[in-house]
Design a protein around this nucleic acid. Sequence first.
DNA 1: AACGGCATCTTTTTT
DNA 2: AGATGCCGTT
Length: 682
Amino acid sequence: MEKIFNRLNESQTNAVKQTEGPVLILAGAGSGKTTTIISRLAYLIEVIGIPASNTLTLTFTNKAAKEMKERSLAMIENVAYPPLLCTFHKFGLLFLKFNIHLLNRKNNFVVIDTDDKKRIIKKINSELPTPLIASEISRYKNSLLTPDDAYKQAELFNYKQIAEVYREYENYLNENNLVDFDDLIALTYKLLNDNPELAKTTSQKYQYIMIDEYQDTNELQLKLIQKLCTSHNNICVVGDDDQSIYGWRGAHIRNIMEFDQDFLGANVYKLEENYRSRSPILKVANALIEHNRSRLGKKLLSTRGGGDDVTTLNSNDENEEARKIATKIGKLLESGVRAKEIAVLYRVNVLSRSIEEGLNRAGIAYKLVGGLRFYDRAEIKDLISYIRVITNNHDDFSLKRIVNKPKRGLGKASVDKIELAAHANETSIYEYIKNSDISTLEGLVKKKNSLTLKEFVKNIDMVAKAALESTYEFIDLLEDTFHLKDIYKGTQDESDRILNMDEFYGLFRDFIKKSPDSSLDEFLNELTLQSEQDQVEGESIYMMSIHASKGLEFEHVFIIGLEEGFLPLIGDGSDLEEERRLGYVSMTRAKETLTLSHAASRFYKGRRSDLQKSRFFNEAGLCDGSLIVEKNTAFKKGDLVRHKVFGTGRVAGVSRAGREFKLNINFAGTKRDILASFVERL
DNA sequence: AACGGCATCTTTTTT
DNA sequence: AGATGCCGTT
């Protein structure tokens, strides 16, 4: 008991002790959110005596789940079964494994990722843009619309087309026993909704439910949570409306704003003591976020006090910015700051380039977080496709990916013919090849190709048998039989790809070592749900998007690209309040110092554009008159300008005149004050 | 089947 | 600029 509470403050303690009924914990940045959830779980299990198996804690990322698991295991002793603590999608996967038969489907389904989804869509329809269809299908599923519903709802012809693609896509998934990410949640909800008895027993199993990062839940997830609460109301959600930055992918900030309406009788606890940042940092972050109109209202107070003022960095362009930041980082490192305590954050990934160059020139090692993920790499997807075909011979989709990798002379034309014939016989490509006489195949494709196809199928069979006997040895046999490392032979990045393949083989062996009894399809589904491998800790500074920085903290943070158009990003679908929250999230990553940087121009999308300083400087209470920008043109002291009447002059000073900027210009010895919009820069 | 040239698009990202 | 995708040529 003491162990649980001696590290908690008063509001955290209150939130932990409120075990019954709906609870909303509004946890500001750096306010000890994870500690609070873990303590609450420990309290339920160790003090109240709730069996661990009757609790359920859901997160969004594997990383969060992993961290919580580790921390809770350290805190909870004498528990026979660890509590179920996993991502929403993992929960869906587990649930479907047990219950998908109620939808007349077999539980050896395979989870496909976004890339697979797009390939399937592309095959069905290559006219409309695939990403659009993919996101629309996702939207339909999250709104629980069937293809029929989508079709009826569609007014524009294109949307009728999309609904048709959606229908065929669903048929394809069913025929091949595949589920996509959205299905993991949507089918789980559907089962609970269609089977009240199942909802009741499931809800009774999970008596106490906690949800992390509640501001990131979408409409469907809320419905699922409500189903899980069918027989009780013990739902505790933790989140921060000010850190909701995933609206663009369907997160519904109203869920946290109106929690008390969805779950009546809710208790609300606010965690407003910040253990992370020095007070000048919080002052700036608080000032910025206060400009948002829709918030629950919460103000972070620093428990650490003191500290340096927030620094503003003004540069003419991205190269100057990069030089300045590299210099500052160099000084920090010289003064003994650990590299991993420094981070450069940006709104848009492309902004990393100039900084990378600057750091390279200064000889400072950095680690780029984000970018192409390991499991999304082509070579890794090839290996996964092989394993998929081996576990499920009917997976035409994966088979087509690998049938000519490495090159076996089986081009699109040949494979299309075989596929057509297979469909005519209502069977899969694999089965068709396996069960057809060589003479039948020769009627479709070249003689040489029919032999190759037969050989391919024979090898898949052979490796699949080996896998049943020894999963561990299977992986070597796979490489030896198909020579997968030859796929990228002769390409420029061959050695990188081979390194990645070896890493994958290593991961496979680790998995089998850890759980020797698991089948290949368990391995596959685990993989699909896996995000980026843990970043190795090293002696280099971090660079990442603001989104990627959520939940992390660094002693010294640099935020670059604070310009109108970048932060806030302006475009269709952009939401100024969400942009402000991004600003807030990025600022509150800093513990000791925060540097906000802006450049007057950047090279972007193939051309150089002038940029206006972000409004967030003013909103955060950081005014700076040294560089004034208007009508997409930056002015500063010393610039040459032309005026329609007075001709050419040189800027001697810049000041503010209401909403406009006023320039003091020296026209051949005569200084005049002119509004900036009346001159052009030369 | 494979390659190369041309057009197009460009926020954030997890599962 | 740089990546991606499509189409026509070899």
